[in-house]
């Protein structure tokens, strides 16, 4: 990579389905435009690179005011999902299934496959050391595409000159 190559660095701090895709989509778009891509996974964002969890990310209807009944297949425009309904057992699983179905219908691959595409396209993945230690994880718990477990300071060093996007 030459000095003039544009660089982007994504920091993934959330582990919900709706917070995983933005980095994957934008990272993939960046690679497709010849941009050098680095992704740093911290706190709950580690779920995106955990072998046991990456394809089990969820979206909860509770506390999400943008998730209306229309998302659940009921054509009711702006009618929200009552919080008391959202707490019922199985609601998170249902919302997750519906969102995954919609994604699949649009040709969007599952998280594991999408992430592998990014790795194959040259994206560099790093895990946050503090978060990995806090959650008692090891390198083996993370997908093969993860280059290393690094400190925040290392990340700042390696992303000099990059545009940073915090998700």
């Amino acid at each position: 990579m030459g000095e003039d190559t544009r660089k982007m660095a994504f920091i993934c701090s959330k582990g919900t389905l709706d917070m995983a895709y933005p980095a994957l989509v934008m990272g993939w778009a960046a690679l497709g435009n010849g941009v050098d891509v680095t992704i740093f996974f911290t706190f709950w964002g580690l779920d995106i690179i955990r072998k046991s969890r990456q394809d089990h990310l969820e979206i909860a209807p509770v506390g999400n005011t943008s998730m209306k009944m229309s998302m659940m297949g009921v054509h009711a425009d702006n009618v929200g999902i009552p919080s008391l309904v959202g707490v019922l057992p199985g609601m998170t699983a249902l919302a997750t299934k519906l969102m995954k179905d919609k994604m699949r219908a649009l040709g969007v691959p599952p998280v594991s496959e999408y992430l592998q595409m990014l790795v194959d396209g040259g994206a560099k993945l790093y895990a946050c050391k503090l978060s990995v230690d806090m959650m008692g994880l090891k390198k083996e718990d993370l997908v093969d595409g993860v280059i290393d477990i690094v400190t925040a300071s290392d990340f700042i060093d390696m992303t000099e000159g990059a545009q940073i996007i915090f998700i």
């Binding site: 497709g32 435009n33 010849g34």
Partner: peptide, 8 residues
């Protein structure tokens, strides 16, 4: 990406 680097 190997055949067409930077935006295949």
């Amino acid at each position: 990406f190997a055949l067409f680097p930077k935006g295949p």
